[in-house]
């Protein structure tokens, strides 16, 4: 998805120097309109607190250390869950992309499991793991597994067979063929999987934390709702948006570093 985005964007649209700022115009405008609407009383603050109030709530939580602690807990859960689910998905993608036997053995099963919404497992997961860390990690890992598995598999299967033949003619061993032809060829697709997985990672974590947790951003939002602290609820939602953007940017940087050969990533 990301690849298509950056390919179809005409180069002339990107303004020099302002490049990095242009993307922030719309979010800032929304915040400005929101602030004006709240201050003028067009939107009652009981329904939606003004951005300034949200910022103030954020500042208080920051000073108490609660905010940093909760963000850290959520970040840690997300990363570990992503690593576990991502590596298992990657391993299955490799195995099934490279070996017919492995694909025959596991692909059908995985496709069946994929069609179960993983959040539907929450009741079962709570029964199995209670509400401690392993429940959240399990759900995140499960959610992240499929996009990475599917895209790794797809990437490996669509590597140009002519290049593989070329590698064999020039005497590449299986290891070399994988390192120099198959893996680099599958990488753009793997990155698409990573970016989908990052979205699912936050989604899963927040849902899991709102339902069964005693710390983390989702828990903070649920607590705030109990005490009618609507500014903290809105703050949590904004932090999700920021964290999501951050994860996406990180994967973009990684993409740009490893795919510099790709025409879509070359600077002119």
């Amino acid at each position: 998805m990301s690849l298509i985005d950056s390919i179809s964007l005409p180069r002339s649209v990107r303004l020099p120097r302002l490049d990095g700022l242009v993307q922030w115009i719309v979010p800032l405008a929304i915040i400005a309109i929101w602030q004006v609407a709240c201050v003028t009383g067009f939107v009652p603050t009981r329904v939606l607190p003004a951005p300034s109030d949200v910022a103030l709530a954020g500042w208080k939580l920051l000073l108490s250390g609660e905010l940093v602690r909760n963000i850290w807990v959520s970040f840690w859960r997300a990363s570990i869950g992503f690593l576990i689910g991502g590596s298992i998905g990657f391993a299955f993608g490799l195995a099934n992309g490279l070996s017919q036997l492995s694909a025959k053995l596991t692909d059908t099963t995985l496709q069946m499991v994929r069609n179960v919404p993983h959040l539907a497992l929450i009741p079962l997961v709570i029964l199995w793991f209670g509400i401690d860390e392993s429940a959240k990690l399990f759900l995140v890992a499960l959610g992240v597994f499929f996009p990475i598995y599917l895209n790794t598999l797809h990437g490996i299967r669509t590597v140009d067979p002519q290049l593989i033949e070329m590698g064999r003619i020039y005497g590449m061993t299986d290891g070399e063929l994988f390192r120099r032809v198959i893996f680099p060829g599958a990488l753009p697709s793997i990155f698409v999987g990573i970016r989908f997985a990052l979205g699912i990672m936050w989604l899963t974590l927040i849902v899991a934390e709102t339902i069964a947790a005693s710390s983390g951003l989702g828990y903070m939002a649920m607590q705030a709702r109990e005490f009618m602290l609507i500014d903290v609820v809105v703050l949590s939602i904004l932090i999700y948006a920021l964290l999501g953007k951050l994860a996406d940017s990180a994967s973009r940087v990684l993409e740009r570093l490893t795919l510099s050969w790709h025409p879509a990533f070359q600077k002119r």
């Binding site: 003619i169 020039y170 060829g185």
Partner: peptide
Amino acid sequence: RVMFQEPRLLPWARVLANVEVGLG
């Protein structure tokens, strides 16, 4: 050695590295 109608270069390797592939 064989040369095909398509160049069959590795897009992720620079020109020199592509030629080195030929050393077998």
